[in-house]
Design a protein around this nucleic acid. Structure first.
Lengths: 232, 232
DNA sequence: GCGATTAGAGAGCACTGCTCTTGACTTCCA
DNA sequence: TGGAAGTCAAGAGCAGTGCTCTCTAATCGC
């Protein structure tokens, strides 16, 4: 029978889910470095070695949390962007930016796990790259849609990108098909600026200086939209 | 005698310097989380408890490394920027940007310590803020100098910053005196974008996508210079 | 030279990730 | 239905961590 076999596998899947839930809660309060397998096991009434039946190492548990994090962020961005009218390109961009910031503020430690210093001795396996591009893909779609609709009018003040970047632009174009190289380059500027901004806020670089962070963020993202060539 | 007293204090200062040197080397190879007091002591032929005569805790050692890091980065930026003609504002900006990137590439773990995820359970003490603004101060000077010289012509495509940001702009103006609010806001965009760019590269976000990183960086920093209103 | 200060050594506490073995329980198949 | 195969929790144990305490020896100031 397959049903009996799935009975055991169901309780196994349930336990894996519970472990990641507890681990995520610990991650949220203690941070990645403070995430302890023993503490997770203790909270679940297990002994530490039992966890290794489900996760071969602490890094594997971290990988799961990273994948979940990318997916959660990606979903938040997708959801926020989908709520806007398809032809409101600037609105879609701003909604996506706000989704990133809001998610980061709500889950600072998970954000740090994704976009902060890499955990030493930990190498992100292949499985993480697909979820990682989810949020990026949304941005690519916005830029590509706007370009296709003829609503992208980048200001003529920026120099054309050097020819060497054509190959890299080709790779990035996977998420924004049909967009010319100079727009790709500007999209990268806007994209990295967004995360620079969020990282500065989350990692405390704005402490003792910037107090109206939401307003500054809003204004900066609007400026980046103009840089991209999105309409106002 | 004061000389004899300084004799003991000299060997003490020498030991403190040696500990931080060894610790910095360990930091460079293992990362912040892998920095172990015991390993440092072992390499110095001391016993771990002896270290506590010089640093009351691991966090205090980290603080010293952080301050040293900010100073090293600040010095690199200052040095690179000082080599340019005073009226070559764009050149000064680009030199500063390159200095940040070069330093980060040469000292990735130290960069992570300064601009990556904060070490959990560690709160940066007051002593770190003064060295932290050293690099920022250079940028402020460039923007302020260019503005005073009438060489700052921001493109008219960006919206004016909201009134709420005036107070924050006032604080930022400490490093770029006499600059109007909209330029301050744009300077923050450029500043955070620079670090967003460097962080993406150092923290591996460009892996499997961007290969010509130096060229992309160069191009993006040039675009940001235009956004700031610097001449070409 | 003597008392006070400072340094290093060592033991020990509570904690970590991880491995290995043991015994009990489930599932599967002849 | 009974035995083989597989799975699981538990416990002991290893090597490592930050940090505290006590003890001894050297050094310094008077």
């Amino acid at each position: 029978m397959n049903a009996s076999r799935t009975a055991r596998e169901r309780v196994r899947a349930e336990l894996i889910r519970e472990i990641t839930d507890v681990a995520r809660r610990h991650l949220a309060t203690e941070g990645a470095a403070g995430l302890s397998l023993r503490a997770v096991a203790r909270e679940m009434g297990m002994v530490s070695s039992a966890i290794y039946r489900y996760f071969p190492s602490r890094d594997d548990l971290l990988t799961t949390l990273i994948i979940d994090g990318y997916n959660a962020l990606g979903e938040a961005v997708e959801h926020a962007e989908a709520a806007r009218a398809r032809d409101d390109f600037t609105g879609r961009w701003l909604a996506g930016c706000r989704a990133v910031r809001d998610w980061a503020l709500a889950h600072p430690h998970e954000y740090a796990l994704l976009y902060g210093s890499p955990v030493p001795g930990y190498a992100a396996p292949r499985d993480t790259v697909a979820p990682a591009v989810r949020a990026t893909a949304v941005y690519g779609r916005i830029v590509a849609d706007a370009y296709r609709a003829g609503r992208l009018a980048p200001p003529p003040i920026f120099p054309p990108p050097p020819a060497v970047l054509a190959k890299d632009a080709e790779a990035v174009r996977a998420v924004m098909p049909g967009v010319p190289d100079d727009v790709v380059a500007r999209a990268i500027v806007a994209w990295t600026s967004l995360f620079g901004m969020v990282s500065f806020e989350i990692f405390g670089q704005f402490d003792n200086t910037i107090t109206h962070r939401a307003e500054l963020f809003e204004h900066n993202m609007t400026c980046l939209a103009r840089l991209l060539g999105l309409p106002d």
